[in-house]
Every structure is written in C-alpha cells, then in structure tokens.
Design a binder for these strands. Structure first.
Length: 110
DNA sequence: GGCGTGACTTGAA
DNA sequence: ATTCAAGCCACGC
C-alpha cells in the first residue's frame, strides 16, 4: 500500500491550501489532523512533498523560523520563495509572522 | 528487528 | 522568563 498514510496525504493537502503570502506551522497542521503531538511527521510529510506542487516553504515552526530551509534545494530557496510571495523574512525569521499566520483550524474552521 | 535521528510542540520544573 | 523532558511516528543503518 502506498497511500495508507492519511496523515501524510492530509498534511500535504492542507499545506497546498495555504494561501499565497501566508504561512502556518507544523503544529497547526498536526492539530488540524487531530495529532498535535505529531508535528514532526508533518515535517516529514513536507519532506515527501518536496518536488511536488506543495508549497512546503509556507510551513515553518511555531516561532516563525524557517527551520526547514536547510532541507530545500538551497538553504536560501525557502526565504526567496516566501519573499517572492510578499512575505518578509529576515535572518530565517518571518516578519509579521503573527499576522501572516494561517491557521487551518481557524481559516478552514473545520 | 532494535536504536537513533529528525522540517516540532507542549507542559512542567 | 528560560530550561528540560517527553511524546509522536517514519525512515535509515
């Protein structure tokens, strides 16, 4: 079976729903999937999402830091992608993170 | 098949 | 406020 992991599929699906110029956190997605403690798996799902149409660069940690930037093709790719969407990033930290934060639990409102 | 690691988060001390 | 510990589960060795 290759698609038995709903978690991965859902996480990737949610990530794909992130509006341009917005960002979210692994925990937010994990919590949306009722698995708040499995935030790490979201990161792994993003790892699997690389090379797809999934904007993994819009997913950061809870501090607004581009923790996963080093896993991109280039460490600066993530920041460039975000800035390309109008998101200000400085020193791997998203500016206005609180305003740009896109919470699936709220925006999607279940 | 066990052990360590990891794109994290939360809660307790 | 900061630091420490534990939980989660897939993947590689």
């Amino acid at each position: 079976m290759e698609e038995n992991s709903n978690f991965f599929k859902n996480a990737q699906d949610v990530a794909r729903l992130i509006p341009i110029g917005r960002v979210t956190s692994y925990g937010a997605i994990a919590k949306y999937l009722s698995t708040a403690k499995s935030a790490r798996m979201v990161g792994w799902a993003m790892n699997a999402a690389k090379g797809t149409d999934i904007p993994a660069h819009r997913v950061v940690n809870r501090e607004g830091l581009l923790s996963g930037a080093k896993h991109f093709s280039t460490p600066t790719k993530m920041q460039l992608l975000l800035e390309n969407e109008g998101v200000k990033v400085q020193n791997q930290q998203i500016q206005n993170f609180k305003e740009l934060f896109w919470d699936p639990n709220v925006e999607l409102a279940f």
